[in-house]
Design a protein around this nucleic acid. Structure first.
Lengths: 195, 195
DNA sequence: CGTTGCATGTAAGGTGTTACATGATTAC
DNA sequence: GTAATCATGTAACACCTTACATGCAACG
């Protein structure tokens, strides 16, 4: 049997805080926790990961007649706890992956209208600020509960991350403005493809 | 025909700076440019993207007897330039994707030995600092050449990014130390799974 | 009474990885 | 002479997403 993908462990991790949750709720919660520093898997993947976790005995589920409609609630099993702990302790840490779409566009700035680049950065700035506020409010909600100590740490990290992202965009906007001046000066030797 | 994946455009972007390059060289260069803010595709993917780009007429190649050994050098075609420019201008910007392995581990800190977490963060700190220095030296090498104006901007951004990453880890180490004190105080109500 | 949200999936398909293969050359 | 690097690939396969399907309940 191949080792489980990281996503599996992440989903099992969501269950390791001692609550029983449906796939739907798991996704919602993943968006607000995992989503800040790891990515949040799609619904369909959450459901299939849950089935996989159940098939290897790391999770168990039961059909529950909810307030309105039947749900399938998943919980972590003792075997699953052991496996997750072993994974967290013994597996080499995954390298950080960053795919920064806006920077890719900037890197190819010689193909673009400088004004469009500026607009793109401003939009990105707004997004980062929104995420920052989200993380900040989530910190405030979580920091009083001792069980959430570690999630609170990562939320605090996320708030700093998105604040820094916002500031870097400001710095980039300034650099871009400088660059526009320089290019304005030396009209003769434009970079390639700038027509 | 489906739209090309972003990786294709990234590889075509590497070719858009007016040089003829082999797949091998492209990968090396990708590690030092794209790798800082986007991820660097594997060799095998670079080769297959190059074949795809050639098949749609965006790139052309020729076998060249290099200094030592035969190489296949790729260059962008005029059609490819137009397509790349159109992509850069008209396609919605890809959202930022972050998959921060170390934060995932920290989020599950209740399963871990705090000392191990500290070690992990220190290792991560060193890595960020190394990347920062790399980006910084690459900035110094590129900033004098006007064609590299935009790549220089992104390298400068990367240098700031990795500096901020390093500082965030320091802040996290401090938070973690505070947390250890709090937990030491309240021995009675340990978080779940901390045995 | 139509649309939105809840809740759970299935199917198809592309993306991107690892592992492997090859052969020639440089370095120790 | 044998290890590592250059240089180019192929094959298999896992991962993950989008699109689609369903059926009920609440909201206006």
């Amino acid at each position: 049997m191949n080792p489980l993908p990281i996503t599996s462990w992440a989903v099992l991790g969501l269950l390791s805080f001692g609550r029983e949750l449906s796939g739907y709720d798991l996704k919602k919660w993943a968006d607000q926790s995992l989503g800040f520093f790891y990515w949040s898997p799609s619904y369909s993947q959450i459901y299939s990961e849950l089935r996989r976790l159940e098939s290897v005995g790391y999770a168990a589920s039961e059909e529950v007649a909810g307030d309105i409609r039947a749900k399938r609630l998943y919980r972590i099993t003792p075997v699953g706890e052991d496996a997750l702990r072993a994974w967290a302790r013994e597996t080499p840490v995954e390298p950080v992956v960053l795919k920064h779409g806006p920077m890719l566009r900037l890197w190819l700035g010689h193909l673009q209208d400088p004004e469009r680049l500026r607009e793109m950065l401003l939009a990105q700035r707004e997004l980062a600020e929104k995420r920052r506020v989200e993380a900040e409010t989530d910190v405030a909600a979580a920091e009083s509960t001792p069980e959430w100590a570690f999630p609170t740490l990562t939320l605090r990290w996320a708030a700093r991350y998105y604040a820094a992202e916002r500031d870097r965009i400001d710095a980039m906007l300034a650099d871009l403005a400088d660059l526009a001046c320089d290019l304005g000066d030396a009209d003769a030797d434009r970079p390639p493809f700038s027509r």
